[in-house]
Nucleic acid binder design. Sequence first.
DNA 1: CGTTCTAATCTGTTTCAACAATTGTTTCTT
DNA 2: AAGAAACAATTGTTGAAACAGATTAGAACG
Lengths: 171, 171
Amino acid sequence: MVSKTLQHIKQTREFDSPKQELFLVMLRLVENLSYDLEQSLKEKGLTQTQYNALRILRGAGPNGLPSCEVGARMVKRVPDVTRLLDRLEKQGWIERERLENNRRVVMSRITPKGLQILEDAQPLIDSFHTNAFHQLTEAQAAEIIRLLDMVTTESPMPTCDEMQDSEEETN
Amino acid sequence: MVSKTLQHIKQTREFDSPKQELFLVMLRLVENLSYDLEQSLKEKGLTQTQYNALRILRGAGPNGLPSCEVGARMVKRVPDVTRLLDRLEKQGWIERERLENNRRVVMSRITPKGLQILEDAQPLIDSFHTNAFHQLTEAQAAEIIRLLDMVTTESPMPTCDEMQDSEEETN
DNA sequence: CGTTCTAATCTGTTTCAACAATTGTTTCTT
DNA sequence: AAGAAACAATTGTTGAAACAGATTAGAACG
């Protein structure tokens, strides 16, 4: 079997195993979809990483989250949370404050301006999601999730003692 | 439904649609697997991008390929093929030569040293592939491929008039 | 032929990713 | 209570990603 997904990169030989092909198919698909999303978000001056961080902070509510906790919740591993938050703060999308009772941690909170940029980006996200996977039925999507859910990967994420937090929301 | 894959990023709320969740699950999984592969390849001084380019050039055979064709076959879009090939040449893994009959194109060929580094990396690749998706049966992997194959994305890759080439092989 | 257009590569520049090491703070241990 | 260990965040530095523009060569067309 050779998937259509791989034909345009001239990959036509047989694979040793379906699993090798699966990795390539997923890699290719995710790269393409991520590129589309990235291009969409760029209209609003957002990167995928920044968007992810803002979503996390919106979900965290008014208490905000410590930097390490933001890092731990990111979909993609980020080796430098500080400067990621720097950029968000520079845009006025978040604000930061060092905790009084534990001066090691810096809490980040999303600002009204940050909430606004997420609102502005929502139509782009919606249109992305209706485009991506539009060839699949919901049942098929659910079936893929069920199968992929068997694949557990221990994440390379940093651990972070979670402090208090209110709601959940991520990407 | 909330997949296990997403629980450790504190994503516990219900999704609007399975497709949104599917995107996140795939994104997360590919990021984790790519990270593992990247760490493995680092032992040999290779990046995933460089490895991909070398595989392409090995598959192309002794004639080599023009830069734009390498760019077109990459799994991930690369906006600067020139400097990617620069780095490979600097390591002695490829050699380049400007075509006589069309002095616009520069052909890149893999060198014996380049073939050797691919040989050296093979055990790492093998061990990666046996680890990744080891929880799935081959039939399940094939089923996911079949479903994902319905999702066609028009690639953001540059087009390149393919010249002669001998064999096929990619990542 | 000279002009214009397109193709393939290269170069310049800015920003971000990645890794290592450091600082400041708290906790543990005895 | 003092020293060691652990934690959270920051800083320094290097390399590569990303994008725009320039360069060079060939094709097309009158």
